[in-house]
């Protein structure tokens, strides 16, 4: 038996401690002020999506524009996109097409138009999910934009920005062991490493609980009407997870940690060093609608 075995009781101890500052399984650093090492923008709008999940394109365009402007601390959205890409870049927009909760195509097209406005040639922009290993834009990409909805997952706990890069490996099962703990390693693959300029974790209608392995029940989603934007995929996912956990507690009326527990976000910091998972070290800039933010 490995000495590194993590039991539920270890998690319970961590959770009790982390309740003060952060999310279950995340490193605990105590109450003292900690230097912020990552920045994310959490933006929400009451009318971005309606009860039938119909998206308001104008509002979501305004949300992403405002979010990147604040994230990069510039005056206009155009300035932000120009900080992300050069006209010579070949840009892959890594989306997610899961049939029940896909990245809205309107948002994909908005991102593409912003890249074009920043000077990137249209022929050098690709939008893809499952075909990234064969899409010529992605195989030659010099820059990546990562955008997908947050959802509970029966094997990895949650699927967020980190997990969205599973399609960049020819052998996804290699990353499935121990609740996909090593998803962070995907970000060190030669054709991925250092290329991601923006991560957008969509929290418009996040799924907080799994019905089955790959199934879906709208009852386990809610109208959060937000998105989390950052350059650090670990920080973006850590904030998203915290919100999902808060919603679970609200819905189930008892402590109900993700099952299986989410190990890959903390491991992405601790083991793979690709970002910041500790909420205490993440600056969260909040924009827009505040009610029911859960964080």
């Amino acid at each position: 038996m490995s000495e590194s075995t993590m039991t539920r009781r270890d998690f319970l101890r961590t959770t009790a401690a982390a309740a003060v500052v952060g999310s279950a399984g995340m490193p605990f650093l105590g109450r003292q002020a900690v230097k912020k090492e990552a920045k994310v923008v959490l933006t929400r709008h009451r009318n971005v999506v309606d009860a039938d999940w119909k998206l308001n394109k104008q509002i979501i365009d305004e949300m992403i524009d405002e979010a990147v402007t604040v994230l990069f601390d510039v005056k206009t959205p155009g300035d932000a996109w120009k900080k992300m890409v050069n006209p010579s870049d070949i840009v892959g927009i890594k989306t997610n097409v899961w049939r029940y909760l896909r990245t809205p195509q309107d948002l994909e097209q908005t991102m593409k138009s912003r890249l074009v406005a920043a000077g990137v040639q249209e022929k050098n922009i690709g939008i893809d999910d499952r075909g990234v290993l064969f899409n010529p834009v992605f195989t030659q990409a010099t820059a990546l934009i990562n955008v997908r909805p947050m959802r509970a997952h029966n094997w990895s706990g949650v699927g967020g920005c980190l997990k969205n890069y599973i399609m960049f490996t020819q052998s996804p099962p290699d990353y499935h062991s121990d609740s996909c703990v090593n998803l962070g390693a995907l970000w060190k693959l030669p054709h991925v490493h250092g290329k991601t300029r923006l991560n957008v974790l969509l929290m418009l209608t996040p799924q907080f609980h799994c019905t089955g392995p790959h199934h879906f029940d709208k009852e386990h989603t809610w109208l959060y009407k937000g998105m989390i934007v950052g350059t650090d995929p670990v920080a973006v996912d850590a904030v998203g997870l915290k919100i999902i956990e808060a919603r679970r507690k609200e819905y189930f009326k008892e402590e109900s940690p993700m099952r299986p527990p989410v190990t890959h976000i903390a491991a992405a910091e601790r083991k793979h060093g690709i970002g910041v998972a500790d909420l205490n070290k993440i600056e969260i800039v909040r924009l827009g609608w505040k009610e029911g933010a859960l964080i």
């Binding site: 038996m1 490995s2 590194s4 075995t5 993590m6 039991t7 539920r8 998690f11 029966n154 094997w155 121990d178 609740s179 940690p257 099952r259 299986p260 527990p261 190990t263």
Partner: peptide, 15 residues
């Protein structure tokens, strides 16, 4: 044990 952990998390190892 992976299925057990989906419904009741016990441990990362197969205790």
């Amino acid at each position: 044990h992976e299925i057990l952990n989906i419904h009741f998390y016990l441990a990362s190892a197969n205790l």
